Simulated assay, not measured.
Amino acid sequence: MPFVNLKTTTTNLTRETKAQVVREFSETLVRVLGKKPESIHIVIDVVEDENWGHAGSLVADTRKLARD
């Protein structure tokens, strides 16, 4: 039973993009590992930008600076 846990921020994340990620991760596990699609579980954890740090800063602050 493959289990994939993807953590990502909200940027560019829609129902359609989440569905595409699930579909393509599943296809990869079927193709590479020979797993049955019905045994694959994928969880997408969406983390707010204010709760994600990278390179010493909050992602929310980095993105704000990029917009300004």
Rank of each mutant, 00 (worst) to 15 (best):
M1H: 06
M1G: 06
M1E: 05
M1Q: 03
M1W: 02
P2D: 01
F3V: 11
F3K: 02
F3E: 00
F3I: 07
F3H: 04
V4A: 05
V4C: 03
N5D: 08
L6C: 07
L6M: 03
L6R: 00
T8R: 07
T8Q: 06
T8C: 10
T8W: 01
T9W: 01
T10I: 05
N12P: 00
N12F: 06
N12S: 09
L13S: 05
R15V: 10
E16D: 07
E16T: 02
E16A: 06
E16H: 00
E16N: 00
T17P: 03
A19R: 13
A19G: 12
Q20L: 13
Q20W: 04
Q20S: 09
V22T: 08
V22N: 04
V22A: 11
V22M: 09
V22L: 14
R23Y: 06
R23S: 13
E24D: 14
E24S: 11
F25E: 04
F25I: 14
F25K: 03
F25V: 15
S26V: 04
E27A: 14
E27L: 13
T28P: 03
L29D: 08
L29W: 05
V30K: 11
R31V: 01
R31N: 12
R31C: 01
V32Q: 10
V32W: 06
L33G: 07
K35Q: 09
K36V: 05
K36H: 11
P37I: 13
E38M: 04
E38V: 08
E38T: 08
S39T: 14
S39P: 00
S39C: 10
I40L: 09
I40V: 12
H41C: 10
H41T: 14
H41K: 15
I42A: 04
I42V: 15
V43Q: 11
V43E: 03
I44Q: 07
V46M: 06
V47M: 07
V47L: 09
E48L: 07
D49Q: 12
D49H: 08
E50S: 15
N51A: 12
N51I: 03
N51S: 14
G53D: 02
G53P: 08
G53R: 06
H54Y: 15
A55T: 12
A55K: 11
A55W: 04
G56M: 07
G56L: 11
G56R: 06
S57E: 15
S57A: 15
L58T: 12
L58K: 13
V59P: 03
A60P: 06
D61Q: 14
D61T: 10
D61E: 15
D61L: 08
R63M: 13
R63W: 12
R63V: 14
L65F: 10
A66S: 08
A66Y: 00
A66M: 11
R67T: 11
R67I: 04
